[in-house]
Design a binder for these strands. Structure first.
Lengths: 196, 196
DNA sequence: TAAATTAGAGAACAATTGGAGAACATTTAG
DNA sequence: CTAAATGTTCTCCAATTGTTCTCTAATTTA
């Protein structure tokens, strides 16, 4: 896969995620600054022949992703589970932990956390949290929220009518309550990781 | 392997980790201050013949790492840092978080944690910890230890002469002290992750 | 000192990658 | 049905890269 093919594959993948529909040759070309539909078509064909894409039917927007590109790679061997004072329990069923399938996606990003406001939720200073972009969230999920278009908070959220309560996971800190219109949800925390 | 060959191999490995594509002869040359593509080519050929690299296909960027030098990679966009009540601080320098480069390796594995013995260290029930295999560890690192070839403990370790103290990160639990010969270190915790 | 080795420059050529656009076929919208 | 848009096939072309050479200079070795 050449560099440009890789770019095109990524573009198609993100386009589908965003529009729930594959782009046309022309749309791909626009994004890649390629004027010729014929040239774009050649790249798409190349990706199909390399098994990175497939075509469904003959019409427009018939490009589809292959399963491998709907999820990405496997990563680490998962060998067992630790439980208090018991022998190691081997995990046979799923012998690999697929980090990326669960955590990656075009709508994901990572934030590094500073401070201890979420310490009781096991999110420590220096940890990274993986966020799925969304502008709404359920009660009691941990969200990234922008307050007054200025400061950012990583807090558990709970709605009370026209107000939103942002609850820290730290007994030494207090909840903050804002009118709904002052709080803009940026995303919800779907994962967390730490390097020691 | 000469010194320069070693440098080139390292450069290629890091380039692939960063760009997910091998560098061209020219790019290698730029990094090594070698003007001639031909000269670079000679080094690459030498590394191939020594089994440190291989070539895939005939096109550009067809240099591949041999399994011994390989690391798979997974990259998430790292957009910023959250700090208490401050505006989002964009991270410009390194805009990607390379999960696997730091966490993966042939001597790594994952355990799923059950129980709350490490709760004060931010390791909660259901979390996954990434372990680097080793049979020795420094004081105050979190280790996976096998006790009497039977039960497994995830605890902070401290040596006291011929005894080893295994310290839980939980105020409601007590340290356990064993004679050195009863405790077999399996590895140390180098990372942790959680799926919400 | 002389020969061999190592290292780099760069020319020359082949192969691959990347792009434009014409011509025609097919699909979709109205 | 008709027209517009899209998909497909094709040729031509340019730019970049990989590869193989030869030449030169510096360093090491016999």
């Amino acid at each position: 896969m050449t560099q440009l093919e890789q770019k095109i594959l990524t573009f198609i993948s993100e386009f589908i995620a965003k529009h729930n529909q594959s782009p046309t040759m022309k749309e791909i070309g626009s994004a890649m600054s390629i004027q010729s539909r014929g040239t774009v078509h050649r790249y798409v064909q190349s990706l199909v022949s390399k098994g990175q894409l497939r075509r469904q039917g003959k019409g427009w927007r018939s490009i589809r992703l292959t399963p491998q590109n709907e999820r990405s790679l496997t990563i680490l061997p998962l060998v067992g589970a630790i439980e208090e004072g018991k022998p190691l329990q081997p995990i046979l069923e799923q012998s690999e932990l697929n980090v990326s399938a669960s955590l990656l996606g075009p709508d994901r990003f990572v934030l590094k956390v500073t401070g201890d406001s979420m310490i009781d939720a096991g999110i420590l200073d220096g940890d990274f949290v993986i966020i799925r972009k969304t502008d709404s969230a359920d009660n009691d999920t941990i969200v990234v929220a922008l307050i007054d278009d200025g400061e950012v908070a990583l807090k558990r959220m709970r709605k009370h009518g026209d107000r939103i309560e942002l609850i820290p996971a730290n007994k030494n800190r207090l909840s903050l309550i804002y009118p709904t219109e002052r709080v803009h949800i940026q995303g919800i925390v779907i994962g967390q990781l730490r390097f020691l």
